[in-house]
């Protein structure tokens, strides 16, 4: 466990020592800012209060941010260590593959969650600049952040796995982007598939539909279990791939 915290600390430091955290943070805040501006305009024109939460957690800007931020945060995790050769130093030190994978995931996840902290100020900023807001229902807001945390964990675990498969960061980012893009495209299946079984499966794994529920304040245990299990499965597969590397 101690090695895990040491490795996690190094991961966090490497995000903030290099330009990655600042580039990703700038990009994220730019998209969030544009979404925020659109939202403020709508509210000023008398849009309903429900738009606030739905816009925060389900707008095209939200998914664009998730799609871009995930590969940017995860592409370097293993690809860079493999390219520089530092993976050899790391995996011949007395640390387990499990702690290496979990520490890298924890570093990316903590950075991802930190990106969301400034958005907590959105409602306060709107009030301060004089936009009239009805009293905010904090239930859907909390559920929206919970949904973002769950979807984010799943996306980042997928990105980490992609980073394990290559020594080129750009390739890892492209594979991750393609995989997540495909997953999000699958969310259209509930509307277009003919077979009810396909529609049901697609509904069960559709992140946009899940986020619509979360933004409405609905926390479905099945959805929570799906994201937790999928994240754990992806991390488990990553650990096994890292262990199997010794046999290659």
């Amino acid at each position: 466990m101690s090695a895990f915290f040491q490795l996690w600390g190094r991961e966090m430091a490497s995000y903030f020592r290099t330009s990655i955290a600042y580039v990703v943070g700038t990009f994220f805040l730019a998209i969030a800012g544009v979404s925020f501006w659109i939202l403020a305009t709508h509210l000023a024109q008398g849009a309903a209060e429900g738009d606030l939460v739905a816009n925060l957690f389900g707008s095209p800007g939200y998914w664009l941010a998730m799609l871009i931020v995930t590969p940017l945060l995860t592409m370097r995790l293993f690809a860079e260590e493999r390219r520089m050769g530092t993976l050899e130093m790391l995996l011949t030190a007395p640390v387990t593959e499990t702690s290496v994978v979990l520490a890298k995931f924890a570093g990316a996840y903590a950075t991802f969650l930190l990106l969301w902290v400034p958005t907590l100020a959105f409602a306060a900023v709107l009030r301060r600049v004089g936009v009239h807001l009805p009293p905010l229902d904090w239930g859907p807001v909390a559920a929206g952040y919970l949904g973002t945390a769950l979807v984010g964990a799943f996306f980042l675990a997928a990105g980490l796995l992609c980073s394990l498969l290559t020594r080129h960061q750009a390739v890892a980012a492209m594979v991750c982007l393609a995989a997540l893009g495909l997953l999000l495209s699958g969310s259209l299946l509930p509307f277009y598939a003919h077979a009810e079984s396909i529609r049901q499966v697609a509904r069960g794994i559709s992140a946009p539909l899940h986020m619509m529920d979360f933004a409405a304040g609905i926390v479905d245990t099945r959805t929570v279990v799906w994201y937790l299990s999928a994240t754990v499965l992806l991390l488990f597969v990553s650990i096994r791939i890292l262990e199997a590397r010794r046999l290659r």
Partner: peptide, 26 residues
């Protein structure tokens, strides 16, 4: 173990790197 080409984390300072390696070695 010292691998060929001595792979190290370029962004770290020498003392930080050695302290980090010392801690993961217990």
């Amino acid at each position: 173990y010292l691998p060929e080409n001595v792979p190290l984390y370029p962004e770290m300072r020498v003392n930080e790197f050695l302290a980090f390696r010392g801690r993961i070695k217990g």
